[in-house]
Simulated scan of single mutants.
Amino acid sequence: MHHARHTAPTLLLCLALGGPAACTAPDTEPPPAPAGLTAQAGSASTVHVMWNAAAERDGVTGYQVFEGDRLVRELPADKTMVDITGLTPQTGYAFTVKAEDAAGNLSAAAPAARATTLAAKAEDLRAPTAPAATTARATGPRSAWVSWSAATDDTGVTAYDVYQGGVRIHTAGPGESGTALGGLQPDTVYTFTVRARDGADNSSPDGPPVDVTTPPASGDGPNTAPAEFTATASPGAVTLAWTAPDTGRETSEYELYVNGKATTVIQFGAGAVPGGRAEHRLTVTEPTGTVWAVKLRARLPDGNWGAFSAERRITLVA
Rank of each mutant, 00 (worst) to 15 (best):
A4R: 15
R5P: 02
C14D: 10
L15I: 14
G18P: 03
G19E: 09
A21N: 09
A21M: 08
P32S: 12
P34D: 07
S43G: 15
M50L: 12
N52L: 13
D58L: 00
E67L: 08
R73V: 06
L75E: 14
A77Y: 13
A77N: 10
T80H: 13
T80W: 02
T85K: 14
Q90D: 15
A99V: 04
A109H: 07
E123F: 14
A127I: 00
P128M: 02
T135M: 07
A138K: 01
W148M: 06
A150I: 06
A150D: 09
T155H: 11
G156N: 05
Q164S: 09
G166I: 02
R168I: 06
H170M: 10
P186T: 05
G199K: 11
D206M: 01
G207Q: 06
V212R: 10
T213V: 15
P216S: 05
P226C: 10
F229E: 13
T230M: 03
G236I: 01
T239K: 13
P245G: 07
D246K: 14
R249V: 09
E255D: 10
V258L: 15
G260E: 08
A262D: 11
A270L: 12
P274A: 09
P274Q: 04
V294Y: 03
A298C: 05
T315S: 10
A318M: 05
